[in-house]
């Protein structure tokens, strides 16, 4: 998109027009007549009529929150989620610690250990939401698309701690089929496959 029109400071030559606004009344009588005019013009009934008309038409646009929710933009940064691999259900997080390293409010902490298959296992993972500024760096840096910002914007609970433990963030096994791929921060750009270069294999 061109930025030309924003850079043009010459107001006169563009299609601007002045809004026709009545002058403010200056005299006492002028003010009095304005009040009377506004009070008895019946504009109230205009509003009531619109409501009545729409009610009769049964074409209601109101979202009945909290039963209904509007879709949230993919780049919205709500409370984090930890995802699992689709096929196996293994945790995607490999414990590389990059989120911990990049976190500018220093609120991510994790413990890892070597598991019985000699793999790195994340034993604990927490985010201190008292400090998190929801900048999205953690999701952006994650090489495995394991930590993402979900779309869950309702954060009402007795304690912040109710959102921060690994178990709260991790997709439960029984809900694995409902796990959504995250298109927001750090996700694979559409068409990435085309830009990947193959390692030369001369043998």
């Amino acid at each position: 998109m061109s930025l030309e029109q924003y850079k043009d400071r010459n107001v006169g030559e563009q299609n601007y027009y002045m809004v026709d606004i009545e002058d403010y009344p200056t005299t006492g009588w002028g003010k009095f007549t304005r009040v009377v005019k506004r009070t008895f013009s019946g504009e109230l009934f205009v509003g009531l009529w619109v409501v009545l008309r729409e009610m009769i038409k049964f074409d209601i646009h109101t979202v009945s929150y909290p039963q209904e929710k509007l879709p949230i933009g993919p780049r919205y940064r709500a409370v984090h989620k930890l995802l699992r691999l689709w096929e196996s259900g293994y945790e995607r997080c490999i414990g590389c610690g990059l989120c911990e390293k990049i976190c500018i409010s220093d609120c991510i902490r994790m413990d890892t250990k070597i598991d019985e298959n000699s793999r790195k296992e994340v034993t604990e993972y927490t985010i201190n939401f008292g400090r998190c500024i929801f900048c999205g760096y953690c999701a952006e840096v994650c090489p495995e698309l394991a930590i993402v910002h979900g779309g869950r914007y309702e954060n009402a609970s007795e304690q912040r701690a109710h959102f921060v433990l690994k178990d709260d963030m991790l997709t439960p096994m029984d809900l694995l089929t409902q796990q959504q791929e995250y298109p927001g921060f750090g996700a694979v750009i559409p068409g990435t496959d085309k830009s990947v270069k193959k390692t030369p294999l001369a043998y």
Binding site: G95, C96, G97, E100, K101, T112, K113, I114, R119, K120
Partner: peptide, 9 residues
């Protein structure tokens, strides 16, 4: 020590 911590922690 293996896999128990990252260098920067």
């Amino acid at each position: 020590f293996q896999y128990s911590a990252n260098a920067w922690e």
